[in-house]
Amino acid sequence: MTSSQPALRVCGLAKSFTVHAQGGLALPVLRDVSLAVSPGECLALVGPSGAGKSTLLRSLYGNYRADSGSIRVRQDDSWTELVGAEPRTVLDVRHRTMGFVSQFLRVIPRVSAVDIVAEPLRRRGADPAEARRKAEFLLGMLGIPSRLWALPPATFSGGEQQRINIARSLIVDYPVLLLDEPTASLDVANRDGVVELICQRRDAGAAIVGIFHDTDVRDAVATRVHEVIPPASSPPVSPAGVSP
């Protein structure tokens, strides 16, 4: 963590969607995106709605398949390329290096909130009791009442589910964190708890890329901003030019 070498480096990234139900309609979204994030930095993606901020974040995580360009993550003192990587390479990077907080929790039937939160740590071989303790600590810090911990979160409120999602993603100290609107449906008190956790991670040396619509949150966590240019205002691209 002493070097200022980036933890994540993106060069010339392009991403379009082809909708076959619409006769192969091509929707270019990202074009020639380049950025780099170093440990201890939090880069806020900004731009109007529809500019492609979420698409960029999901492409970084390998959830969306980039058309071209490069996404490299620092792992084991070398660069791992994610564009065109084998699934197991992406899974390994997600397992050890890169965490993602989405806006919505994908609930797992019958699994309790505390077990959902503890799972990523257990999967890394942590002692189950220890993983549980850490999960309970995070749930407490994020203001989830302890009477809910043993329940499956399917019936929880949107804000509670979102905080469980955050706890699940922050229970592992990922060197790279991707945050998609982590405070979107939270009230002020709970929002402040999340902001504090993100700042802790950043100051402990995580490289963070996030989307924060709330300007107070953005001002509190971000060290830099990166403007995502909406596709319509980019130079026109012929469909042939963006096909993979």
Binding site: F17, T18, R58, G62, N63, Y64, R65, P87, V90, L91
Partner: peptide, 11 residues
């Protein structure tokens, strides 16, 4: 491909 990628960004 990756399960979440095939389901969220089917080609």
């Amino acid at each position: 491909g990756l399960t979440d990628q095939v389901l969220d960004d089917p080609q």
